[in-house]
Amino acid sequence: MPDAEATSGRAARLPSERGEPAEITVDGRPVGCFAGETVATAMLAAGVPAFSHRNGEPRIPLCNMGTCFECGVTVDGVPLTRACLTTVRDGMRVETSER
């Protein structure tokens, strides 16, 4: 069971049943997560400060339903993949985007 307490300000997993532990990398760094989570959940829970950038400004998910594209990351080489609509897979490679 992941820790419901997190650093102040950060997103936190609630106590709840989750899938099997999994690991993805975000910009090369390992990020632990659970099967069934979206890439957005994994990154928010890990405290990744920016999913994408617009003109240098950091952005994280705004809509969580596929309409804003602020969560656009590169997943296994495919750019502008919406983290909020993508389910994690063990070994998935995620790169945040600069723009």
Binding site: G9, R10, R13, L14, R18, E37, C63, N64, M65, C84
Partner: peptide, 16 residues
């Protein structure tokens, strides 16, 4: 809608 979606379908609280 984003915050509710994270709570309902991911059991994630987006902030303190």
């Amino acid at each position: 809608g984003a915050v509710q979606g994270f709570l309902k379908s991911q059991r994630l609280r987006v902030a303190d």
